[in-house]
Design a protein around this nucleic acid. Sequence first.
DNA 1: CGGATAGTTCGATGAACGTCGTAGTTCGAT
DNA 2: ATCGAACTACGACGTTCATCGAACTATCCG
Lengths: 107, 107
Amino acid sequence: MPASVPLPPLAYPDRDEITVEAVLRALADPVRLAMVRQLANSETEISCSGFEVPVTKSTLTHHLATLRQAGVIVGRQVGTTRYNALRRNDLDALFPGLLDGVLAAPR
Amino acid sequence: MPASVPLPPLAYPDRDEITVEAVLRALADPVRLAMVRQLANSETEISCSGFEVPVTKSTLTHHLATLRQAGVIVGRQVGTTRYNALRRNDLDALFPGLLDGVLAAPR
DNA sequence: CGGATAGTTCGATGAACGTCGTAGTTCGAT
DNA sequence: ATCGAACTACGACGTTCATCGAACTATCCG
């Protein structure tokens, strides 16, 4: 059995690697949009199990990965839990108004 | 053979029927995003055959229908050609900043 | 150590989507 | 009336994607 390797620290795109298309694709799913809304309305970060969405845990992990790879969220690992937060600064800098416009939507 | 019926006037969603999710899905495709960019950068409306995208005409029609049903564009019929334009007013009213944020994206 | 908790990974599956070609319809011009 | 131009509609095909359950890893706590 191979020696245990320290977890690959979970790659995030740099600000200049974030594309508007990936962000739009990430936001276009109802579950992920709900997650982003919860993050935007929350004072604190939200852990994987802290999201209120009607999917199983494995599906939730998949959505988190999609948002992460698109550059929409970052995760801070603490023990076994990962606290997620919106990359507001980066998104606002790259696409000013986009996130606010989405969040302003009545539905 | 049935008598020729005047073209069903091609239904568009009312402003209050436009959902942010449908708009995001519509914008999330590279071809459609290119079309929206061309519309935004154009002084005039653009006909179906006026878009510069690497797809066949039937595919283009499909993308136009997607944008239309999402409430992103309107079409004005003149003879056999349909001139398309962005629904800037409606989109800006519903999701202020969204469209500008997307169009401001370097890529 | 052993158990519980938090996430991830891995197929598998079914639905949605982008793409195309062909055929059809409407309209304008010859 | 016939032809061509501009789209639209339909059916088909392959890919991507959201979803799930089950197995797995890692961490924390008695």
